[in-house]
Design a protein around this nucleic acid. Structure first.
Lengths: 213, 213
DNA sequence: AACTGTTTGAAACATACGTTTGAAACCTAT
DNA sequence: ATAGGTTTCAAACGTATGTTTCAAACAGTT
């Protein structure tokens, strides 16, 4: 049996935190293994390569997350009916799913968000392809449902608007912790995750619902 | 005299393109110098270090751009009066300034945008500090003017909204070329830069102008 | 207790990186 | 034409990276 989850998880925990802090290229295997307290060779033994470790880091939280998100989204759609979905509420469902999964695994939702943001921003083609191959069938229905809640517009305008939304999400995800710190510093307000999500949902739904050009 | 602009510019041209394509950490000086057709040592001779080259790459276009943007923005504000500024139009001014500067230097505005997006996304603290130190006095008035055009809201909600806007801009910038390619592929439409900017301006101004929560 | 497959450990490997060196080539001004 | 400062060049330096190796330690089965 394989089953030695201890070393594997110690590596994943350390990798997840360091990747989120510093990015992929800027994090070496030696940093990861020394933070994890395991031997350097363990990464290549258990994962095969650094690329595979990066992918494993994502799938560890993305697989349960996408399941949770799919279920919560379907439940919401069943509840209100497809023609009555509300964009802001869908964003809230997205965030709630992330938070539920993070809590279930006793991990920081901010770290997950930052990783997702990095996946978009960093130049890791293998990662983008991996994510597309494994998780696109969860996010395509999400996009389709979003579209039904929007006013009629040309395909090209819809194309851009949905990518503006993804951009807002990705950026906010990737800097959520430093932004929260800024808010705490500059405004002496500790900005709750929940509040930020509701601001975000309001912002993108207003953008999506704006009358077509 | 120094004045040997030839090698310096060849290096900057190559660096700009490679940084935009692959990011900073993933681009080596050897890639840059071989693409530029100059000797490896030339980078350290002319710029001192890789960090300094990265900063020089930015200041080469950011200095003329921020001048142009400041002037165009002031002209617009003078024209309509401070209390009548329109958010979408300010975004359009931002984009127009970038395009004017790019054309003047016979370079791609998409490359500039992608570099700006990367500056946000990549973990280059020296770059962020450099940009903040040299260019914040152009963007602070821009933000202040934006605020006057928005409805009353709590400081914390304004804080988040303006960062959502920056996020949308940064993301769109950093992927403008691949998104345009996607649009051309998936929709058989070649999406003009101008059109995209007007969609973007509409989107973020709707988000900013949404009634406060 | 001895055998088996699995996991760890210290060390080395090959390669790539940013940077430095010192001599050659190049300019320009006298 | 020559001297002096500037720029280029090939080569090397030191360091850090991802990966591999192989022996030692471990765990479970008979």
């Amino acid at each position: 049996m394989m089953a030695n989850g201890n070393t594997v998880d110690k590596i994943l925990d350390a990798a997840q935190e360091l990747f989120a802090e510093r990015g992929f290229a800027e994090t070496s295997l030696r940093m990861i293994t020394s933070k994890a307290g395991v031997n350097l060779a363990a990464v290549n033994y258990h994962f095969g390569s650094k690329e595979a470790l990066i992918q494993a880091t994502f799938s560890r939280f993305l697989t349960p997350f996408s399941r949770e998100f799919r279920d919560q989204l379907n439940a919401y759609i069943k509840l209100v009916g497809e023609e009555n979905v509300d964009i802001a509420h869908m964003i809230a469902v997205l965030a709630a799913s992330a938070q539920v999964v993070a809590e279930r695994h006793e991990q920081s939702v901010a770290v997950f968000m930052r990783l997702m943001g990095l996946a978009y921003a960093q130049a890791q083609n293998h990662l983008r392809e991996y994510l597309k191959e494994h998780y696109s069938d969860v996010f395509k229905p999400f996009m389709r449902t979003m579209k039904t809640a929007c006013p009629e517009m040309t395909p090209i305008e819809w194309f851009w608007r949905i990518h503006f939304v993804l951009g807002t999400l990705a950026f906010t995800m990737s800097s959520v912790d430093s932004l929260q710190a800024m808010a705490a510093n500059d405004l002496s307000v500790d900005s709750q995750f929940k509040d930020m999500i509701s601001y975000l949902a309001k912002f993108v739904s207003a953008g999506l619902l704006a009358p077509a050009t």
